[in-house]
């Protein structure tokens, strides 16, 4: 099946992203990862999600990372050996997740709880209710409209946050530890936000 291959491919790319020290390469790999997961979403019948993931993950996020890399070092510092604490935390979390999957409903079965409660209502009622064939749009904009409104405000908040952070003019002296200002003028300018 196609998704076995896709999943394995995703796995490989993910490991490569963690391993590779060149952040530029990592960004490119990340774009690939996004495209792959978009493909997976498409396979899983989630067309809207696939479209969005491709646009956001492979497009917008990558551009932003590249913009940051234009300002910062391209190569990551090597980290000494494995972080045992992190491995432990990850191991415990992963074990908990695997423990949970032992009882999860069969993948793709039509009689899963998710498929027999609430879900069918959307499938059956969205056209009679609002005459919209795209159920995703119907649920998104009407049944769960307030969620989407929240989403709009989240992205608006991000814009405001970025605006607040990056509309402050950069200053040279911020590079150095501000122990001894070089001149009175520089000191005045150093003050920010």
């Amino acid at each position: 099946m196609i998704d076995i291959g896709l999943l394995l491919f995703l796995l490989v790319v993910a490991i490569a992203i963690v391993k590779v020290r060149d952040l530029f390469a990592a960004a490119m790999l990340f774009a690939i990862y996004s495209l792959l997961s978009a493909a997976l979403f498409a396979v899983l019948d989630a067309g809207d999600v696939a479209l969005t993931e491709a646009a956001v993950g492979a497009g917008f996020s990558t551009i932003l990372v590249l913009a940051v890399l234009a300002l910062a070092r391209r190569y990551e510092h090597p980290t000494g050996g494995h972080n045992l604490l992190a491995l432990f935390v990850v191991g415990v979390t992963g074990a908990a997740l695997i423990y949970a999957t032992l009882d999860l409903p069969e993948f793709g079965a039509a009689d899963n709880p998710a498929q027999i409660h609430v879900g069918p209502h959307y499938i059956e009622q969205s056209y009679p209710d609002m005459g919209v064939p795209n159920m995703v749009a119907a649920v998104l904009a009407s049944y769960r409209s307030i969620d989407t409104m929240g989403e709009v405000f989240v992205i608006f908040a991000a814009a405001l946050g970025v605006y607040a952070l990056l509309s402050v003019k950069p200053r040279r002296r911020q590079f150095v530890l501000p122990r001894r200002p070089r001149s009175g003028k520089a000191r005045d300018e150093d003050d920010e936000s």
Partner: peptide
């Protein structure tokens, strides 16, 4: 439950941004 997640993220995102306003 999911609405809780969305509003949690609204508040969190805004909170990160306003914390970053510190001098």
């Amino acid at each position: 439950a999911f609405n809780i997640f969305v509003f949690l993220e609204i508040s969190s995102l805004a909170t990160y941004a306003i914390i970053a306003h510190g001098r």
